[in-house]
């Protein structure tokens, strides 16, 4: 087993010897520079060395013009082979940017310009009504094309793309949709839609909310306005009136306090965190019952999770930001 492994590795090593990837002259130069050292390499690698690969290089859409066969043309003419063809022929490269070093961006730009020229007469909608699209950033585009695209040119291209996006959605040609796909990010806003909540067979709707280090689950059923939190009534659980109000704020702000019963389960954190985690949980459960209340709840500040948390302490500081007091010497 081990012997077979060794012989196979040896064979691979021998095979990779003739097609050494490095250019010879550079090698000799370096070797000459380090002539003091023994020329033998210190370790033997048995795997053939490879070039760094560009994994995501897109295939070019054009190809170089095929080679012209002069010998074939010159036979029937009798003169110098290919002389007539040379006289009549004007070679035009398939890509307008054939002679630039890296033509991808120019091609993209020309392609989009041509497309815009073609669809320019289609009716448009105002910019604010156009569908929201997350375009690739310039850095992402540079990585995709592997080309140092200038910012200004990129912005010109984005201008065309935004104009294309403003074509009326019902008349949007499929060609444009396909063309724009190349410049969009992989995930678009609104792609991930959370599963809609359901009112279960007991008439309960569930909502989950978090704040600081507290997390709350609220179950909302239609009822008289009774509230139980961890099995206790509201004043038993929250001593401060402010906390009680914030726990049921979603219901109070939409004047639904006398129409639902709440069962809350809260854990972690302090009383402020728990009360405000409940705000969010109750609001989410209420949205399951009445989705149309979302704007009202957003105005009441019950929809967005407050992301603030305790800032960590840093080394060299007394607290998160406080520095030690300055002491003379």
């Amino acid at each position: 087993m081990a012997r077979a492994e060794f012989s196979r590795s040896l064979r691979v090593a021998v095979e990779c010897l003739p097609n050494s990837p490095r250019p010879r002259p550079a090698r000799t130069m370096r070797c000459a520079h380090r002539s003091l050292y023994p020329p033998t390499s210190r370790c033997i690698s048995t795997t053939p060395s490879r070039f760094a690969e560009l994994t995501e290089t897109p295939p070019e859409k054009f190809a170089a013009a095929p080679e012209i066969n002069f010998s074939k043309e010159g036979e029937d003419d009798g003169g110098k082979p290919g002389s007539r063809l040379l006289r009549t022929l004007r070679v035009v490269p398939a890509s307008p940017s054939y002679f630039s070093a890296k033509p991808t961006f120019t091609d993209d730009f020309i392609h989009l310009s041509a497309l815009l020229r073609k669809v320019a007469t289609l009716p448009t909608i105002p910019t604010y009504e156009a569908p929201k699209v997350a375009w690739k950033t310039i850095d992402q585009y540079r990585i995709m094309t592997n080309e140092p695209v200038k910012t200004q040119r990129f912005h010109k291209m984005m201008h065309i793309l935004r104009r294309l996006n403003c074509i009326h959605p019902s008349l949007m040609p499929d060609e444009v949709v396909q063309a724009m796909k190349r410049y969009k990010k992989d995930s678009q806003p609104g792609d991930i839609v959370p599963a809609p909540g359901v009112v279960d067979e007991w008439g309960r709707a569930k909502g989950v909310g978090r704040r600081k280090t507290s997390s709350a689950v609220a179950w909302l059923v239609e009822g008289e306005g009774e509230v139980l939190i961890n099995g206790k009534s509201l004043p038993q659980y929250f001593g401060r009136l402010h906390h009680r109000e914030s726990a049921v704020w979603a219901l109070k702000a939409t004047s639904r306090l006398d129409k639902y019963n709440v069962f809350g389960l809260v854990s972690g954190g302090g009383s402020t965190g728990q009360a405000e985690a409940l705000t969010l949980a109750v609001a989410k459960a209420l949205l399951v019952h009445e989705p149309a209340l979302k704007p009202a709840l957003r105005r009441a500040g019950c929809v967005t999770r407050d992301p603030r948390k305790v800032e960590r302490k840093k080394a060299g500081h007394v607290k998160a930001r406080k520095m030690p007091t300055w002491v003379k010497r």
Binding site: E224, S233, L234, P235, L241, E245, S255
Partner: peptide, 16 residues
């Protein structure tokens, strides 16, 4: 009114 009473009733822990 009804709304005010039921709001306070709820906040007072079911009429404490």
């Amino acid at each position: 009114d009804d709304g005010f009473v039921s709001e306070k009733w709820s906040l007072a822990g079911m009429g404490n």
